[in-house]
Design a protein around this nucleic acid. Structure first.
Lengths: 154, 154
DNA sequence: TTTTGTGCAAACAATTTGCATGAGA
DNA sequence: TCTCATGCAAATTGTTTGCACAAAA
């Protein structure tokens, strides 16, 4: 639950691999893991900069990779032309509703979906791994602006 | 059904907008629309080149955009770092099973999924537009190689 | 003959990499 | 002190754009 808990998991991971526990790594982990949204590498760097810490973008990318490797974060692609990183303390398996007007991302889960996938896959001899479901649309707040800007890849 | 049918729709679209019907446009449309898979811009250019026709990559991109605009193709992002284009003569709404070993893409559809989405969205005041479901895993043929290469964005 | 397209090369944006220097253990 | 990380700048990759020339209407 506590932030420090997650940071501890990260430091344990680093120690385990005999990798230095640097200020930058801790700062980046703190920013991403404390965030509720889905941040881009740039978002992380900007937050860091706003905080007075200047960390190179390359370091941000490298550290985000580490967080992904140890399972504390996941890379996401919403088809925006860049990637976002999602902290993994949330539900392990969930789907996304993204608003094409304001960019807000809401999450939901329905266990019927993995079930449908399991059956469909089994019927074709396909062994399913991860899956994702992305729904684009308009959130309650933006309802008035239906958004025709939906020519992005799915 | 016939290829020429789809090409006709494309030429009609061009004529309608008073846009020139060029050899390159016809060649690109023919290649993409005849394809069963999901091709990248590079794939299209390579096929064209193998055919003796040399068309600039920029033209390929521009024409693929046109095909998307007129609804004959859709842009897809499988998280590979580049985009693919899918001809739209197939089922209008379907989901993807992609093999992380060989890259094969299979399609399926299950009407319970749009249903679940409609209900979930309604419950939150979200107006759903398009949605997509992507399942990664291992296809029957590649079953023996479970693929640990799954650190790509979802 | 007047659009609009095409090809090429340069421009771009996100991400990665090489390398000299600096910080952790 | 030895290893590995960092920062910067250069390199890479997919895609887009500007512009002189060429093809379609």
């Amino acid at each position: 639950m506590a932030d420090s808990d997650v940071i501890d998991r990260f430091t344990a991971f680093l120690r385990d691999r005999r990798l230095p526990i640097t200020q930058q790594r801790l700062a980046i982990a703190a920013i991403l893991l404390r965030a509720h949204g889905h941040m881009s590498a740039d978002d992380v760097a900007a937050t860091l900069a706003a905080d007075g810490q200047k960390v190179g973008l390359a370091t941000v990318y490298r550290t985000l990779d580490l967080l992904v490797s140890c399972g504390l974060a996941e890379q996401r692609d919403f088809g925006e032309g860049f990637k976002r990183y999602e902290p993994m303390h949330a539900q392990p398996n969930h789907y996304h509703l993204t608003c094409t007007v304001c960019g807000a991302v809401a999450e939901f889960f329905d266990e019927r979906i993995p079930d449908i996938i399991r059956r469909t896959a089994a019927a074709r001899g396909f062994v399913p791994g991860q899956h994702r479901l992305l729904v684009r649309g308009t959130c309650r707040a933006c309802r008035k602006t239906p958004s025709v800007l939906d020519r992005r890849p799915m």
